[in-house]
Simulated scan of single mutants.
Amino acid sequence: MLEPGKIKAITIDLDDTLWPIWPVIERAEKALHDWLAAHAPMASALFANPAALREIRTEMGNSRPELKHDMSALRRESIRLALYRAGENPLLAQEAFEVFFAERQRVTLFDDALPALEFLSERFPVVALSNGNADLQRIGLSRFFRAAIHSREFGVGKPDPRIFHAAAGAVDVQPEHVLHIGDDATLDALGALNAGMQAAWLNRADQPWPHEQEPQVMLTELGELRGLLG
């Protein structure tokens, strides 16, 4: 059972919690492809080949394991490798990545996201906790957050307890006084529980809970938080 009286801070996931991520990624990848088609057509052809793209990403994962938590660096270096293999200028990688990254920040919030952020931020310090590379300043949501902890900067990602503890520490609160909200049963909810936090699993698609240990609360939409924490 949720213990609202213990909650002194909120941590919240971003992708697929506040906005659907795959339409964003698909649009960003198309923008990248169009840019490469105009500036590096051979590399563009590589990215259009699923087998070649898979091989590039596999090689990046094997050769640069230190980047596994940094989605931005992995994307940029994959572009650089494709340019190199295509015999085109690897120095274009940064500019190409910026095209992708700018489009990646053009998100469409779920209808319940903005009211929930307004409600939560009026009552608690809120910390973004993400394995992705969303930029809250560019998206226009930074005013709701006291801090943001990303795996690319911290060096480890969810469900590692250390990143949850870092998020609690960012607002000087012990983990047991934090409620974490997120859509991923393992990375978010179970990760928060193992870090000593309370967990709210956002289950928009009515999926079965896959673990033995259960979160304190399961949500179908963020608006339910008002009744639980109001």
Rank of each mutant, 00 (worst) to 15 (best):
A189K: 07
R123W: 13
L14D: 11
P4F: 15
L193F: 03
L2A: 05
E176R: 12
I25V: 14
R104L: 06
H39F: 09
R226E: 13
A168M: 02
R104P: 00
E29V: 02
R27E: 12
S78T: 02
S72H: 15
A168I: 00
E66H: 11
L202F: 07
D188N: 08
L190A: 12
L190M: 14
D160M: 06
A192P: 01
F110K: 10
I163D: 01
A93M: 07
S72R: 14
P125V: 15
L46G: 04
L53M: 13
F119K: 09
R64H: 15
H177A: 12
E3Y: 11
R162E: 01
P210H: 03
A37V: 00
P159N: 07
M1A: 03
R146S: 12
H211S: 06
L129W: 10
M218V: 09
L53A: 09
A52N: 10
A205S: 14
G230N: 12
D34Y: 13
P50T: 01
L53G: 02
K30N: 10
I56D: 01
D172I: 05
G157E: 10
Q174D: 08
D206A: 13
R85E: 02
N89V: 02
L179I: 00
H39I: 02
E95L: 11
R138V: 04
L222R: 07
D135T: 00
G191Y: 08
P159A: 03
Q207N: 15
K8T: 06
G230R: 10
T11F: 15
M1C: 04
D206R: 14
A38H: 08
H177I: 09
A86G: 01
I139P: 08
A102H: 07
E26V: 05
I149T: 05
G196Q: 07
V24N: 06
P20W: 01
G230C: 09
Q137H: 14
R27Y: 06
F124E: 04
D135C: 01
P208S: 08
S72A: 13
P175L: 12
A189Q: 04
E29K: 10
E95A: 09
I10W: 12
L193T: 00
F101D: 09
A102P: 00
P50G: 02
S72I: 02
E224P: 03
L46N: 09
V171W: 04
L229W: 13
V99C: 07
S121I: 07
A82R: 08
F124M: 09
I181R: 06
E214H: 12
T220Y: 13
I10P: 00
D183M: 10
E3V: 04
R204A: 11
P41G: 12
D112C: 08
D172C: 06
A116G: 05
S44Q: 13
I25M: 09
N131I: 08
I149R: 12
A147S: 11
A134D: 02
P4L: 15
L193A: 01
F124P: 00
L120C: 03
T186C: 07
N194M: 10
V24A: 06
V24F: 08
P90V: 02
Y84E: 05
E95I: 01
A28D: 05
G227T: 04
V126R: 11
G157C: 06
Q213S: 14
E66S: 05
E221V: 11
F124V: 07
D172M: 10
